[in-house]
Design a protein around this nucleic acid. Structure first.
Lengths: 152, 152
DNA sequence: GTTCCTCTTGCAACAGAGTGCAATTGCAAC
DNA sequence: GTTGCAATTGCACTCTGTTGCAAGAGGAAC
């Protein structure tokens, strides 16, 4: 089946029930691969189980996220969910122009987190970090001058 | 009156009308000082002008933001607006525990933006950047171990 | 296989944010 | 002081995400 590895065990071990709705949500995001919206998860599940409700999708995604099986990022197009696959941690860059999501190494944020900790004793939580901006494709496509000049 | 300096001139210069609703929103955020939600702006305005509508608040805040007179940040408690006061640019750190907002020097993000540009040719937009985490007060209050260990 | 109890679900209702449109109004020209 | 008209407002509605609650179901104990 899907690619949701040890997810079922994690659910049982933490004392949660193995309901069809949870299995279906897990399968949907595993098959979907990339970053999916709640509405897309709902659509996929409803192909198999038409009674699925959007509120259940949100609750199941929330639970899976609490268990560390799923993460979400916030894009201008709304919240997107993705399966956490062992080890391959990364952050995201979302292009304001084309809407695509790019992966970013954790290295950059580790540096930022450390700097902020040293200066302010603020323990930054990078879990759902998303950088907004313009990707290289869109930059070269139209020579966008980006009013405001945020980057030196 | 309030502390909204050259805001009125900016509105006129850019060919926008000086409506009572706009003046009231401007006064509200100027008097409010810190970071206010749209609902709080509405409440303040309605003390003087009870017919004010929430959609107008959003549209006026959007306009003021386009003109660079106001910025918004996104916190776990929702979107917050603040008056842009000459020169003193900064970013924000929001504490997940107490909800307070702290200012952060632009320096840290400038470094991040440059690093990401060099590596990925992604032009990051830091305008509405907000770092989430736990502030030093809440860290010392209860010795929160922060499951997940995001900061090394 | 039944029973029981708590966890989950589906539904409906709600909150925050934003949009389309007809009615209203600021204000420039007279 | 009037007039005219585009910019703006208020209302109703949409869209995403969340919550309260009664009905339903997983699964441990028997």
């Amino acid at each position: 089946m899907g690619g949701h590895g040890h997810a079922l065990e994690t659910l049982k071990e933490t004392g949660h029930r193995l309901t069809p709705q949870r299995l279906l949500v897990l399968e949907a995001i595993a098959e979907g691969g990339g970053h999916m919206g709640a509405e897309e998860v709902l659509a996929r599940v409803q192909k198999v189980y038409p009674y699925m409700d959007i509120s259940t999708v949100y609750r199941v995604l929330g639970l899976l996220e609490d268990l560390g099986l799923v993460t979400h990022i916030t894009t201008p197009e709304g919240t997107r969910y993705e399966l956490v696959r062992g080890g391959e941690r990364h952050h995201h860059m979302v292009c304001r122009a084309c809407g695509r999501t790019w992966d970013m190494s954790t290295r950059f944020l580790a540096d930022l987190g450390e700097a902020v900790w040293k200066e302010y004793r603020f323990r930054a939580d990078m879990a759902h970090f998303t950088l907004q901006g313009i990707c290289k494709d869109c930059l070269s496509a139209d020579n966008n001058p980006m009013s405001g000049g945020e980057t030196p």
